[in-house]
């Protein structure tokens, strides 16, 4: 089951944070088709956000075809997202090695993140986050 964390100071709208975190979980395989998303009640009880915000996020996910609401039962994952590299995938191993080299080269965490973001921006320009 996914657990949402709301960052109040990120400047990103709360419902967008829910959508992003759900997609992230789909990519990482933490959520798989058939899995049930937490009920709005559970999400708002844990995060103290407005229930309509959760519904808005779930509607957005439904609109994108990622989940479906089954009346009286809850919201379920319909399909997973992208080719999410699992923990033991070659891509992940390469990135792991790259990060280790960056660390060995004396780069700070922020430097590495900036570098990574810059490369991401170059290759995925125009793609929705």
């Amino acid at each position: 089951m996914i657990e949402y964390r709301i960052d109040r100071h990120s400047g990103v709208a709360t419902y967008v944070q829910l959508v992003q975190q759900t997609k992230q979980a789909l990519r990482l395989g933490l959520l798989r088709p058939g899995d049930k998303l937490p009920a709005a009640r559970e999400v708002v009880e844990a995060t103290a956000i407005n229930p309509n915000t959760v519904l808005k996020a779930y509607r957005e996910l439904e609109r994108e075809g990622l989940v479906e609401a089954r009346r009286g039962m809850g919201t379920f994952v319909r399909r997973s997202l992208g080719a999410a590299p699992a923990d033991d995938s070659p891509l992940r191993a390469e990135l792991d090695g790259w990060a280790a080299r960056a660390h060995a080269a004396g780069l700070e965490r922020d430097d590495v993140a900036a570098l990574f973001t810059a490369v991401l921006d170059k290759h995925f320009q125009g793609d929705p986050s």
Partner: peptide, 14 residues
């Protein structure tokens, strides 16, 4: 505050 606000929101959701 967080905990009670969560309780209130759950009430609204449920």
């Amino acid at each position: 505050r967080r905990e009670l606000m969560g309780t209130l929101m759950a009430q609204a959701a449920q």
